[in-house]
Each structure stands twice: as structure tokens, then as C-alpha cells.
Amino acid sequence: MSGEIYVLIEHLQGQVLDISYILLAQARELAGNDAQVTAILLGHQAQALTAELAADEVFYYDHPLLETFTAEAYWKVLAGLLEERKPRLMLFGETTIGSETAGGLSMRLGLPLVSHCQKIVRDGAVLRWVSQLFAGKMLAEGDLPEGTALVTMQPGAFKPEQGKSRQSPKITPQPPADLSGLRTSVKQIIQPSGEDVDITRLDVLVSVGRGIQQKENIELAQALAESLNTVLAGSRPVVDQGWLPVSRLVGKSGKAVKPKLYLALGISGAPEHVEALGNVEMIVAINTDPNAPIFNLARFGATVDALDLLPVLSEKVQQAKGG
């Protein structure tokens, strides 16, 4: 393909987020030898963040109001850039930063947008996309239209290391953006409470999803977790119901975990949850739905009701411990 591929670099509290390196890896694969990969960095005194970006060039916008993301500011800056330069493609993360940036730009500029994208491949001059729909139960495929296209991508197809380079890219500072009249401002960033156990450091995690059905059943899973000397974690629906604290949330807006064993009880395996399991050594899934996407990721599985299994399994674990 010819033309430029832009990648929006996401950062928070002085760190480039892994999704940006993953997008750079995707862009590099698409670019081959005949297109340029340009990283787009919006920040304040953030030039050091460019060090490992595997891009040919970085367009760097510096402004105090760009220190922390707001959709309004990003729309203003990037709309001008895309209108002027008309790249072939701009990649964003399917994230708290990327998805709202891309959506606003698509509507403002009339540019086509594909979201939930897993992978883009070249087929001659055509760019084919694959997206996950219906919480991972279906894949949609299509071709990107000609002209500039916007794509928000989920992690998974590449490792962050593939988008890193030891050679620092060329940095091209961009003219100061006019950010007057913004209606959104950042008040403060609140760190997660350190009072609870850190689930990212545990060797075993028992994790519950929608299949746990009601608050009273949490105790059943809690008992198993305790017998395995660990704590209970969960997917989004369980935390949204207030049955577990946010500190136990595994998933896109929670924590990415890396235990030796992840026991998923009544968890379907929606993309937002699965993206936090990339470094788990072994997943064991219990779900009544044989088509649940979690079984495509798990090493072992069983299609029984977790609520029926839990008391039996807790007892067997206790017996194995000699209790």
C-alpha cells in the first residue's frame, strides 16, 4: 500500500500504554516497504515518550491542555491534521482514549470508521478488516473504503514488544494547537485504593461472572477461593452489581492478571474481559454455554453450572489438602 499510516499514541501518567505499541506493530506490518508509519503524540513535555516507538516519524503536539486526555482537545488537534494530510489510515486503540477520539473524528470529518477490529490484512491494494461483534460470538469482515479510514483496534494480534524499537524515531514538533474554548477539563487523577490485595500478584485466581447469578452465591465462590489460598476476582457485570469491589475487576477497565491458574466460573469471555488474560499461564473455564468464547482460550473446560459444581469442588479441594 502507499500513503501514510497514522497511529495515535496513548499515554497516562507519563507512560505509553501498551496498546500504542501493538498498533505500531500492526501499522508496520501493513506498511511494508512502501508506506510510512507516523506516530501521533499529543502531550505536554512528553517528548521522552517517543523513545521506543517503532515509527518512521513522530508528529508531536505540545500544549499544557494536552497533558491528560480530553476528547474535545484531541478532536480539535487531530481534525486539522487529518484534513490537511489525508493519510490512508489512522489506527486508534479500542480504549478509553482511542474509541471516543475516533468516533468524534469520524462524524466531524465524514470519515469511515471500523471499531472492535482484531486485525487488518493487505490483499493487493485492498485492506481487509476483521472485527469482533456480539461480545466475541461473531466475526464481521469487510474492506476498508479508499481514502482516509479510521480503525479502532483491540489488543491480541500483536505483542507490545513488536511495536518497540531501539532506534528513536525522527520527531517533528507540530505548530501549537488552538485549544481555546474547551468545555472539558481534568480536575484530578485518582489512584486505585491500595487497601485491597493486589490481584495482579497472585498465583491463583478464582473469578466469577454473570453466571454467578446473585449476590448470595458469591459466598460459594469465596469458599473455594479461600480453600485455594487466594481471593475472588470477577468480570464487569459482577462489579457493576456491587458484589465485588473495583479492585477485584479483571478486564479492560480493571486489571490485567497473570496467575498460574485462572479459574473462570460463569464467565462468557467477552473481548473486554479476555484482553486482560493474555499473560495467564492456564485458564480453566466452567460455563453452561458450550459456545462461550472463553472455551476457545481455556486449556480445560466443563459445561456444567458453576453453582452446582462449587460446593463439590470446594469439598474435593479440602480433602486434597487433608482438611
Binding site: 474535545e72 471516543e100 468516533g103 462524524m107 461483534l133 468545555r183
Partner: peptide, 24 residues
């Protein structure tokens, strides 16, 4: 929403109405 692949409704309608948007 899990059934569409052209971005989130909120960001789209905010841009259309020229209103600020905060997601998540």
C-alpha cells in the same frame, strides 16, 4: 453496544451536535 462496528453512539452524536463528550 456489542452489535455495531462503527464506533460508540455517544461520541458520534456529541460530534454531530458539537457538544463535549466523556466516555467510560
Amino acid at each position: 453496544a456489542h452489535h455495531r462496528h462503527d464506533g460508540a453512539l455517544g461520541a458520534l452524536i456529541a460530534a454531530l451536535a458539537d457538544l463535549p463528550y466523556i466516555g467510560y
